[in-house]
Structures are given as structure tokens and as C-alpha cells.
Design a protein around this nucleic acid. Structure first.
Length: 892
RNA sequence: GCCGGGGUGGCGGAAUCGGCAGACGCUACGGACUUAAAAUCCGUUGGGGGCCAACCCUCCGUGCGGGUUCGAGUCCCGCCCUCGGCACCA
């Protein structure tokens, strides 16, 4: 017998690499049975490692699978090409960010090609090109027209490392998500998108996203942070004047008309508005507290007659402001405060309540002022203890009685609450709210944690904001006909923004044509990625951002695949854009992504030397010593990253084992949603499998005469009625495998799909080598063909080659996905488990017909294990048809 | 603190409408082939015991403690650990 040619993955890759693209070119005009498969587009930061590959390999497998199932698959790719790293790299290499970006894009496209990942490159998007960012500007203007984009001075998150402001979403534990610098609050005039206008919808519509991971929805829900409560106005006592004895009698709020928060005439501040989610605890209020930034603070200071107290308050406020809101908002910070010398009146019982300024009260949330209820709020309790304020219990339940060491934050019934005594917390919430509302002293309100999206960035490499500042006309939007406002194409000038380039900002006012200044900020790059999935439908359209008609046919995206790190930022912004564009009439759907899959990270061992820091695994020998100083290295498991020096280059793997091996291992290594460790041994295992497959198919291929592959769901070419028992088992295994692989791919269980394919391969190898060596050629041909087809989304190169060697002239992607025959799944015999008292004791093989016959199964099972039952009394026999017989015996 | 994942052999992980725990792969060990090694192939591989070996038998075993059930990795109650998100948000 002639030798089988070696599995030459390099030759095979070269042969088929360029042959597939045509299958993923789509006509967008006529979607037919469409499937929009989308991977989150990458930031072109350099070379991709095998961990990045996971995202794209999953996406490619899905696209190929749906293609074979007869869908018109749209699978585009592009580059999120604006952003800070390009600027930093450009400064380092003394080039222009564009050069660095383009070079990386070219490199990454080569990598996709090597991986056998197919996109419709005619639809490629690069967000740094004017023909893309022009539409960012257009979108900005649309939002501006509808008051969804506005300019405001606010305390913004300033990152000193990146020298720019950041959105709330980009601040992690008070640090910059990019460079980890401690973020400061600075008062700056900045552009915002009014995402809060959609807070309610963004929250509510989460429930319709059935095919999103639960945790992503939960994260968004937390982030939006809705709370229902009541806003309450507390009258403030007029301050004492010098020489006066008693303060003026306060107006009785229960009788008087509320006037809401604010000042009145020359009388100064009259009332203070707070927000609470627990109006039922209002009788327990023993202090009020303002945020140091609260507008009343200044006035209180001004009105303070006592000079030393005035200084005390001033000093405290200054210190708190310096500490900054971010630092102060950490739960670990000690509660500090100063008494203002002023009192408020509790509208429900006329009690006089001292007003404090406290560091733990945030201006950003609610009204910037709180009512302090130490009996029922842990923070207020801590505060009251420190400042020796009274703690009043106004809610009780069976558990809380007698307990006084802490705030009771649960629900119960009211006590010490006047006419509301005895009501449940819930009833009291409503009744107290209503009582306040009827007197004009309060109103039901809903607050969100979500803040508006700050989009201004003080950087060069981004989309210029299309606004002109004119001394005469004020803020003037650039007319749509003048878009794009292009980035000045100067040799890159280092760490400078547009504010340093007079050629850019000097302009004329579009309205009065007088001299004016362009806005010198650029947009957050998350603007770019909030709508790119719309642009893929008509990527070269010079007339509009996207073609609504076609977009409404192709979207929502059927399957979106990407990293969970975008659970909040990108995915929330995209949902916001979709809803805003829908309301403008451009889109006819509510949510951009029907199904979302978030793949886990790939981890790899990393070595750390106390002196030389991270050492690449390739430099580390068996002994795990530092190659520079010989010291023992600390071994850790970390996410693959350049900074930890533990990345694996796909090129290494492809050179040594081929792209199919990398793809197979990536999909097989573990459940795709979970983080998983990359190991060299695992890669070799996948390589071994492909070699075994190669040998099996080639050894048989020469015996098999070429003929067209039958259409699915039919047994053409094979005749199961004439199969031997052995052949029937092979046939059954084949159909079981097709079924489970199909279902596993649909549910993203690639690891078990691969293992099912391995089992089938093993079974076929056993069948081929079994002693009689009489192989049913028709069966074998069919089995190998189907095997190759169901493996092809995972390892397209080797499968294409094997498919051709099985005698086919047409491509794998032109084939239909194999179907399975329900009848073939069953087989002829079934194994029934025999248990005694629930423990496995024996097995019984019965014909399928009998496996459903309770009486017969019981009879046979008891006969088979009779010897075991000596002297024991049978109490009961449980029969599960098709599965088992459990004999319950009483021990003598 | 709150919310959500997850805890199964030496390792990654299978099996959750309650019904054979450990599929598939890796590692390790033994054997075949080879002058030798690599590769490949065959076998063993959760732990303990039944004198050795084969076969077989048996007990224990899915984070911990209870419970429901003929039967629990799977369901219920109470904990522990771990990863992720949110967190002085009133």
C-alpha cells in the first residue's frame, strides 16, 4: 500500500486561503434569508495575539455555519482607528498617528487572512478616515438639533496622564481605565450627549434582550441605577441677626403653602430640597446634610454672623472640595462634617433639625442634599454616632425589635410617626408621599445613577467637534454642507491638541462670517463605535451616514460577538444611539443587537523576576529561573497581554502547527464564555487530532469513487436497511454526532461540538481497523463527507482539502449543512441500567421495542440479578422506560 | 455590603426535564516500532480495599453541613471559598 502523504498544513493553507472571499460578498439590496454576523471591531493597536483570535475565530465559525445552512451571511470587519495609543506611539516613534494606525491595520488584515477568517473587505470601515468621521459630525449635529447634545460646565473627570477628560464610564475606582492615573475633578465646559433622557428605555428594554448574557444586562441595570423615591422640601429657619433674641417664629409647614426650593425676594433661602427612597422614615430625621458643592453653602457662609464659625465652615468646605468628589465617594473615607448653625423644619412634625455640610453627600446625585435618618440608614447612623446626634427608631419588625447597635434598613411598620403609626413601610411610602405632595412640599420622583455622556476629549487623534464659537453669534453648528471638518493634515506635532493649531481653529462664523474659533476638542472614540454597525450596510455612501431602507432590512445584528469589557460602555452607548436615531425617524428598530455573546479572555503563564520584572515564557527554562540573574521566578496565570509579556503570537502557532490547529484548539480549550488557560500541550493535542483525521480520510479516499454528495436529510447512496449490526452502530454514531454538533454550534458550545467530532473520528478509526476489515464503502464515504463538512466551520483549510480529496470539485461553502435522520439516532439495541437501592449493579441490553415495556424490563432485570437478591425482600421496583430499572430491597 | 457567575480526577473540562459521575482532550506511567531519539500506535490513569495478576467484586467520592427522593453533581435550607460588576447613589 502506498504511503499516505504527510499533513502539509502550509501547502493546504496556501491553496485555499484566497478561495473563500467570494462566498461572503453580499448584495445588501436583497437580503433574502439574512444573517448579520458581527464581531466587535478592533482598535488597531499592533499585532494580535492568540487571545484576540478567540473573538474572530468564533465569529468566523458562526458565519461559515450559517452560510452552509443557507443564509445570506453578512460578516464585515473594520477598525476603530481613532484613539490615544496612536498618538502616544506617534510621539515615541516621531511619526504621524495615521502612519502608525495604517501600518497596524495592514498587519492585522494579514493576520485575519492567515487565520482563514473571511470578511467582506469591500465593506471595511476605518473610523479615522474623513469619509467615516464626517458622519460622526453629522450625527453630532442631529443630536444637537434635538437638544440631545449640549454644552455645559460641569465637574468633569480629568485624567492627568492622558491630559484629557473622561466619561464616567471610563473611570474605574477613581482611576483612568487606560493609564490608571488618579482621576481629578475639574470644572470645565464640555460637550455632553443626553443619554439620561433614555435612561428609562435603556433600562426597560433590557428585558426584551432575551439572548444577551444575564450578567451584561445586570451590569447595565446597575449602571443605570434607577431608584424611586420622594423629593421633599424642608423649610429653613431664618438666621439670627445680631442683637436679636429669638428667631422669628417659623411658618408652620403643615398649614402653610409650600413654595418649593429656592429663594424668595430679599428674604434669602427658604427651603431645602432632598431626595429620599425612604419617605416612610421621615419621622426619624435628626439632621440634614449638604454636599460641599451645594449652592446654598456659599449663602450660609455669607449669612453667618459669627466670624470664627464662618472661618470654620469655609475651611471645611475648602478641604472637602480639594479632596474631590471621586475620593470622597469611596465608602472607606471617614465621614466628616461641619455644622452650619442653621436649622430646617421637618414638614411632618415641625421638629427643628440641624443642617450640616458633610463630605459623604454627593452633589452629583439626587439634589445634593439629604435628610439624615440614623435609625434606618447605615451611613447616617455612622454619622450620628460620630457627631452624637439622636437616633430615632421609626420602623420596626419582628427581627428589629430590641436591636439598637446598628441602623435597621429593612421594611416593617411605622412607630413614633404620629398619624402614620402602624402602617407598613410600603403604605407609608405612598401615604407620606401623597400627604407631602398635597401640601406642595414634596413629589414622587425617580432618580438615576446614570449621568450624561461627556464626549469632549482634549486630544488630536479623533473626530473634530463640528462647532464654531463666534463672539457675535455664540455657539454655531457647522452647516452639514461644510462637513467634514477635517483634522489638520500637518506633520504630527507631538503632545498637542487642536487648541495649539491656529490653522485649524481660526475660521469664519457660518452665520455672520465674522472671525470665529472652531471648537478644538475631539469626540470620545466611543462615538465612532456607537453606530459603525449601521455603516457596514452602505460603507461607501457619500450622501448619508447610512441607508435607512437597507439598514432596516439587515438589522438588528443577528449575532454580535465580543469581549465582556464592553458590557457597559460600548453596548450602552450603541443602544442609546439606536433609540435616538429611531426617534429621529432613521431607524425602525429598538435594539441594535439581537443576540450577544461575550467570549472569555485567554490566559497564559507569566513569569516575574523581582528584579527584571516580567519575563517572556520562551526565555524561561525548566527551572523557572530568571535568564538575567538566575533568581527564582514567580509563576502566575494572567490574561495575555503585552505588559505581562506572556502573549503567544499566532504566527508562531501557525508556522509550527497551522491555522487550523490554532482555531481548533481555541474552540476546544473550554467553554467559550469562560476565561481559560492557553497551553502548548493543548495545542499539540489538537494538532494530533487533525493528523489522525488526515490519515483516516486519505486512507479511505483512494478506495472511494467520486460522486456528488447527496442532499441532506436523505439517505441517498447508502442503504441502512442492508446494514450489518456493526454498520448500523456507525450510522447511528454519525447521525448522533451531526445532531449534537448542530445543536452545540447553535448554542455556542464549541468545546463539546469538537469533542463529539473527535468521538466520531475515533469510532471511524476503530471501525476501519477492526479485524474483519470489511468496510461498507458507501457508508464510509458518507460518514467521511459529513464529518468533514461539520468540522469545516472550525478548521476550514484541512476540511476544504479533504473534501476535494474525497472527489468533489465544488467548495465546502457551497454545500448544505448535513442533516440527520431521527430514525438513525435510535439504533436497534438499548442498554438499560439495573440498580439496587439506587446503586448501579448491572446492565441489560434489550431491543429498542422492549426498552419501553415496563413489565418486560422489570422481568428481565429481576431475572438477571436474581443471584444478587438472595434472601432480600423486594419492596418496590422502579422502571424508567428506556433508561433503568431500580430494585428497592429491604435488608434482612 | 448588594447583585451575578463559578467550585467536579494530576490539569482544561463533560454530564443539570433528578436516573451509568468523570465524555473529549492534556499530563503521567507502561508497552510496541527504532541502533537511538522524535513522531506514531496500543494499554493504564478519581481514591481505598478484596494476597499477586487478569477478570471481577466492594466501599468512598462532584466546596462544607443538613433535607427531600427508590435514586441528588443536578432540587430545597443554611454556610464557606473564588471570580466579575456595582458600591457613602440617599
Amino acid at each position: 500500500m502506498p504511503r499516505i502523504a504527510k499533513y502539509d498544513f502550509k501547502k493546504i493553507a496556501k491553496r485555499w486561503q484566497d478561495s473563500w472571499e467570494a462566498f461572503f460578498r453580499v448584495e445588501t439590496n436583497n437580503p433574502g434569508r439574512k444573517f448579520y454576523s458581527l464581531n466587535m471591531f478592533p482598535y488597531p493597536s499592533g499585532v494580535l495575539h492568540v487571545g484576540h483570535g478567540r473573538n474572530y475565530i468564533i465569529g468566523d465559525a458562526i458565519a461559515r455555519f450559517f452560510k452552509m445552512r443557507g443564509y445570506n451571511v453578512l460578516n464585515p470587519m473594520g477598525f476603530d482607528a481613532f484613539g490615544l495609543p496612536a498618538e502616544n506611539a506617534a510621539i515615541e516613534n516621531k511619526t504621524h498617528p495615521r502612519e502608525w494606525t495604517i501600518a497596524n491595520i495592514e498587519g492585522m488584515k494579514k493576520q485575519f487572512h492567515e487565520w482563514g477568517i473571511i470578511y467582506d473587505w469591500d465593506r471595511e470601515i476605518r473610523t479615522c478616515e474623513p469619509d467615516y468621521y464626517k458622519w460622526n459630525q453629522w450625527l453630532f449635529l442631529q443630536l444637537y438639533k434635538r437638544d440631545l447634545a449640549y454644552r455645559s460646565d460641569a465637574l468633569a473627570n480629568w485624567c492627568p496622564g492622558c491630559e484629557t477628560v473622561l466619561a464616567n464610564e471610563q473611570v474605574i475606582d477613581g482611576h483612568c481605565e487606560r493609564c490608571d492615573s488618579l482621576v481629578e475633578k475639574r470644572k470645565l465646559t464640555q460637550w455632553f450627549f443626553k443619554i439620561t433622557q433614555y435612561a428609562e428605555q435603556l433600562l426597560n428594554d433590557l428585558q426584551h434582550l432575551e439572548h444577551w448574557p444575564e450578567r451584561v444586562k445586570k451590569m447595565q441595570q446597575n449602571w443605570i441605577g434607577r431608584s424611586e423615591g420622594v423629593e421633599i422640601d424642608f423649610f429653613i429657619e431664618t438666621p439670627l441677626r445680631h442683637g436679636e433674641g429669638n428667631p422669628h417664629p417659623t411658618p408652620s409647614p403643615l398649614k402653610g403653602e409650600g413654595r418649593g426650593e429656592g429663594r424668595e425676594g430679599g428674604q434669602g433661602i427658604r427651603s431645602l430640597r432632598v431626595f429620599t427612597t425612604r419617605p416612610d422614615t421621615i419621622f426619624g430625621v435628626t439632621f440634614m446634610a449638604l454636599a460641599p458643592e451645594h449652592p446654598f453653602v456659599e449663602e450660609f457662609i455669607a449669612q453667618e454672623p459669627d466670624a470664627s464659625r464662618k472661618e470654620e465652615i469655609k475651611a471645611f468646605v475648602q478641604k472637602a472640595l480639594q479632596q474631590g468628589e471621586i475620593a470622597r465617594s469611596a465608602a472607606t473615607v471617614e465621614k466628616e462634617s461641619v455644622f452650619t448653625g442653621r436649622y430646617a423644619i421637618n414638614p411632618v412634625n415641625n421638629q427643628k433639625i440641624p443642617i450640616y455640610i458633610a463630605n459623604y453627600v454627593l452633589m452629583e446625585y439626587g439634589t445634593g442634599a439629604i435628610m439624615g435618618v440614623p435609625g434606618h440608614d447605615a451611613r447616617d447612623f455612622e454619622f450620628a454616632q460620630k457627631y452624637k446626634l439622636p437616633i430615632v427608631r421609626v420602623i420596626e419588625n419582628d427581627e428589629s425589635k430590641g436591636e439598637v447597635g446598628a441602623a435597621f434598613e429593612g421594611e416593617g411598620w411605622l412607630v413614633n410617626s404620629g398619624e402614620f403609626d402602624g402602617l407598613s413601610s410600603r403604605e407609608a411610602f405612598r401615604k407620606i408621599g401623597e400627604a407631602l405632595q398635597s401640601r406642595g412640599l414634596g413629589r414622587f420622583a425617580v432618580k438615576y445613577r446614570l449621568r450624561d455622556w461627556l464626549i469632549s476629549r482634549q486630544r488630536y487623534w479623533g473626530t473634530p467637534i463640528p462647532i464654531v464659537h463666534c463672539e457675535e453669534c455664540g455657539i454655531v453648528p457647522v452647516p452639514e454642507s461644510e462637513l467634514p471638518v477635517k483634522l489638520p493634515d500637518l506633520p504630527f506635532i507631538g503632545k498637542k491638541g487642536l487648541a495649539d493649531i491656529s490653522e485649524f481653529y481660526q475660521t469664519r462664523c457660518p452665520q455672520c462670517h465674522g472671525p470665529a474659533k472652531r471648537d478644538t476638542d475631539t469626540m470620545d472614540t466611543f462615538v465612532d463605535s456607537s453606530w459603525y454597525y449601521l455603516r457596514y450596510i452602505s460603507p461607501n455612501d457619500g450622501e448619508r451616514a447610512f441607508d435607512s431602507e437597507a439598514v432596516n432590512k439587515w438589522l438588528p445584528v443577528d449575532q454580535y460577538v465580543g469581549g465582556v469589557e464592553h458590557a457597559i460602555l460600548h453596548l450602552l452607548y450603541s443602544r442609546f444611539f439606536t433609540k435616538a436615531l429611531r426617534d429621529m425617524g432613521y431607524l425602525a428598530f429598538d435594539e441594535p443587537f439581537t443576540r450577544l455573546f461575550t467570549q472569555g479572555m485567554v490566559e497564559h503563564v507569566s513569569y516575574r523576576c523581582p528584579e527584571h520584572n516580567w519575563i517572556h515564557p520562551n526565555e524561561v527554562g525548566e527551572s523557572a529561573q530568571c535568564p538575567h540573574c538566575g533568581r527564582p521566578l514567580k509563576i502566575e496565570l494572567n490574561k495575555m497581554s503585552k505588559s505581562k509579556r506572556n502573549t503567544i503570537s499566532p504566527q508562531e502557532v501557525i508556522d509550527q502547527y497551522g491555522a487550523d490547529t490554532e482555531r481548533l484548539y481555541t474552540l476546544f480549550m473550554g467553554p467559550p464564555e469562560r476565561d481559560i488557560e492557553w497551553t502548548e500541550e493543548g495545542v499539540r493535542g489538537s494538532f494530533r487530532f487533525l493528523n489522525r483525521l488526515w490519515t483516516l480520510v486519505l486512507a479511505q479516499a483512494r478506495k472511494i469513487s467520486p460522486s456528488p454528495h447527496p442532499s441532506p436529510w436523505k439517505g441517498e447512496g447508502v442503504n441502512p436497511a442492508e446494514f450489518t449490526e456493526r454498520e448500523k452502530r456507525v450510522w447511528q454514531k454519525l447521525h448522533q454526532t451531526i445532531k449534537s454538533v448542530t445543536e452545540d454550534i447553535e448554542s455556542f458550545h464549541f468545546n463539546t461540538a469538537v469533542s463529539a467530532i473527535m468521538e466520531l473520528t475515533n469510532e471511524l478509526i476503530v471501525y476501519v481497523n477492526e479485524p474483519p476489515k470489511k468496510i461498507n464503502q458507501a457508508l464510509m464515504k458518507r460518514a467521511l463527507e459529513d464529518l468533514v463538512l461539520i468540522l469545516s466551520p472550525f478548521t476550514p483549510f484541512v476540511c476544504e482539502e479533504l473534501w476535494r480529496r474525497l472527489g468533489h470539485a465544488d467548495a465546502v461553502l457551497e454545500q448544505s449543512w448535513p442533516g440527520y435522520d431521527e430514525e438513525a439516532l435510535v439504533g436497534t439495541e438499548r442498554e438499560i441500567v439495573i440498580q439496587v437501592n439506587g446503586k448501579l449493579r448491572d446492565r441489560l441490553s434489550v431491543p429498542v421495542a422492549i426498552s419501553e415495556d415496563r413489565a418486560e424490563l422489570e422481568k428481565r432485570a429481576l431475572a438477571q440479578i436474581q443471584s444478587r437478591l438472595d434472601g432480600k425482600q423486594i419492596a418496590r421496583v422502579i422502571v424508567v422506560p428506556g433508561r433503568l430499572v431500580n430494585v428497592v430491597v429491604k435488608e434482612p
